[in-house]
Nucleic acid binder design. Structure first.
Lengths: 156, 156
DNA sequence: ATTGCTGCAAAACGTTTGCACCTAT
DNA sequence: ATAGGTGCAAACGTTTTGCAGCAAT
């Protein structure tokens, strides 16, 4: 058990609903907490299989949905039609996606924090969540760790 | 030809690149301009087939990509892993997605307009684009046109 | 004459589902 | 005992690809 606090949150959530407490679900949680950065459901499944965990694809997909529901992870989408997840322990942040090299840079700005609830108030909704993605290109191309890889793929 | 201005933009764009000017591409453009609201590539393909246009799926997908490149349409993603497109003639706006009923409300706010380029300047990028999605729930449930449909699907 | 584009079908991809067995309650 | 969860494989829906023929340059 990698993180007792997270496991407790999941256990409480499962109890509160009509969900059963199964070892597989905690295995998925462990794998999630170990994963640095953003990952797709299938990435996680492959990783767990490589580590000889005994889980099925269906269970991974199902469990990730539960982890979203109890706010342990967040869903993200960076425009490639693959649902990405990330650990929700760090504070809320937004993403900049580099169109040149694919890097995803996380940033924080207090300016937009209250924005969603303001807009929702105007429109008669209750804000639940938001996602702000900025698509950009890196100016300082040399400083980019994907530079060589990108260069290789360029057709001059 | 539904919109001569748009067709001219596409023609110029195709000429500028090494892309050929084919009737199919203008057929796709016409269908796009006629479509109100957001649509997936396959939605458009089905629509065109129903209207007895002679186009293939591959051509629709390919052409939509070209239309994005010449800024006639925009890619959107509302979290369901389906690439949605929309006409880019109206001015830049953002989206609020209702988690209760699936409605997508477009809104405009000057507050966030300069935000992406500011952030990019700080981080050493050049802003190209951004997308802000707010996920929310409708307070005034009666005023929602999807209310009955949603109610039907609820399990009390 | 080239070279890119088209249509078609099949493949690929991430994701969901159906089913029989299993297990937490 | 019984609902709910699991693993597996097959199905699904969207998107991409391979290829032979066609058409714009």
């Amino acid at each position: 058990m990698k993180n007792h606090q997270a496991a407790e949150i999941l256990r409480e959530f499962l109890k509160r609903g009509k969900n059963r407490i199964t070892p597989e679900r905690f295995d998925v949680l462990d794998a999630v907490l170990e994963y640095k950065g953003h990952f797709g459901a299938d990435d996680l499944y492959i990783l767990m299989k490589n580590q000889n965990f005994q889980v099925s694809r269906a269970t991974v997909y199902n469990t990730l949905e539960l982890l979203v529901q109890c706010d342990l992870i967040r869903k993200r989408n960076f425009g490639d039609n693959i649902t990405k997840y990330e650990n929700n322990f760090k504070k809320q942040h937004d993403h900049l996606i580099c169109l040149d090299c694919g890097r995803i840079v996380e940033f924080n700005s207090s300016k937009i924090k209250e924005f969603p609830s303001q807009i929702c108030q105007e429109l008669g909704f209750e804000a639940e969540n938001y996602s702000l993605n900025i698509y950009a290109k890196c100016k300082n191309i040399k400083g980019c760790k994907y530079y060589m890889q990108r260069k290789k793929n360029l057709t001059p």
